[in-house]
Simulated scan of single mutants.
Amino acid sequence: MMAFDVSNNTETLPLVSVLIPAFNHERFVQRCLDSVLEDPYPAKELIIIDDGSTDKTADRIADWVATHCMDLPIEYVRRENRGIAATLNELVARASGEFLRPGASDDYLLPGGLDAQVRYLLTHPGKGAVIGDSVVVDQDDKKIHESGMRDLHRANKHLYRSDDGIRRAIISQWAIGGPVALMRRSALDTVDRWSEGLRIEDWDLFLRLAARDALGFIDVSVCAYRIHGANLSKTRHTPTRVINLAESRQVALRRACLFDEPYRTLLRAQSHYIGAKIAFLQRQPSPLVFHLLAYLSLVVLSKLRVPSTNPRAEAT
């Protein structure tokens, strides 16, 4: 992978706005911010919102901004808690860049990731966003997995090499771990940004992008996705898992209309697969059997569906 010639005038390069929603990550946020500064891509700005942290995250950010305010353009806002989707939407509204790189205050960028993703979007003008892979680290920055997609989520990365494969992967094998996307501002304007009030706002957004064939992929690790006590506890807490899965099922049902066949039927099948997971966690055997049978039937039906020749429905 060739790097940009940073000796060139940075005004000729598209501006990337790195967007950091921060919440209760006092231990990790400095590493996150350092990584933005360390990335060699020169045309960038940093927008940070502390979303009502109750620990010392806001103080850590303020100290870092005071130290590095002359090193790159920075905007920092501290306010009450409004949730991740509202914070991401506000970050986009404050950003000036043609390209937007959402981050997370407990993860960090890997050098060269911005370069690779900007190059992809510049050479693929029909794509609204591009995702990469991640490495997975623990709370002490020790590498756990070389590939978040392959090793953590057991995904087949070969699927992501075509529009058909990306659609199938986003629908049936969600494997986007960490902040791995670079997006065109215009693409977010088209699909109405993040849906506020959702816990799984990322899957909802990527479904809307995939429905338009607006999503690309590069097999490059662009960030470090951190696994630590706080996010592990969320995935292990059964009531929280049930709430998240129930929301995922509603998203699948709501967004099915955006897709042509056979993807529409696949997304309906996925809603039943999620329903089976909920029934299993709640120890409800009859709903479990019902959802599994419905899932298998719809998967078979999707194989018989002829791809639609009608224009795709517009994302709303």
Score class of each variant (00 low, 15 high):
13 L>W: 09
24 N>G: 02
25 H>A: 12
28 F>S: 08
32 C>F: 06
33 L>R: 08
35 S>M: 11
38 E>N: 03
42 P>R: 04
47 I>T: 12
49 I>R: 05
49 I>E: 01
64 W>H: 01
68 H>F: 02
69 C>Q: 14
73 P>A: 10
82 R>W: 12
82 R>F: 09
88 L>M: 09
92 V>P: 10
92 V>S: 02
98 E>A: 04
103 G>K: 04
111 P>S: 09
112 G>N: 01
113 G>E: 05
114 L>W: 12
120 Y>C: 02
121 L>Q: 12
125 P>N: 04
128 G>I: 08
144 I>Y: 04
144 I>S: 05
149 M>S: 01
153 H>I: 15
153 H>V: 13
156 N>R: 09
164 D>A: 12
168 R>A: 13
168 R>S: 11
171 I>V: 12
171 I>Q: 07
178 G>N: 03
180 V>P: 09
195 S>N: 15
196 E>M: 11
199 R>A: 15
204 D>T: 13
215 L>I: 00
216 G>H: 08
219 D>R: 06
226 R>T: 13
227 I>A: 00
231 N>P: 07
232 L>Q: 15
237 H>D: 05
241 R>A: 08
246 A>L: 02
254 R>E: 09
254 R>P: 07
255 R>G: 06
261 E>G: 08
264 R>D: 02
265 T>P: 01
273 Y>K: 10
286 S>D: 15
307 P>W: 07
309 T>H: 13
310 N>T: 13
312 R>N: 11
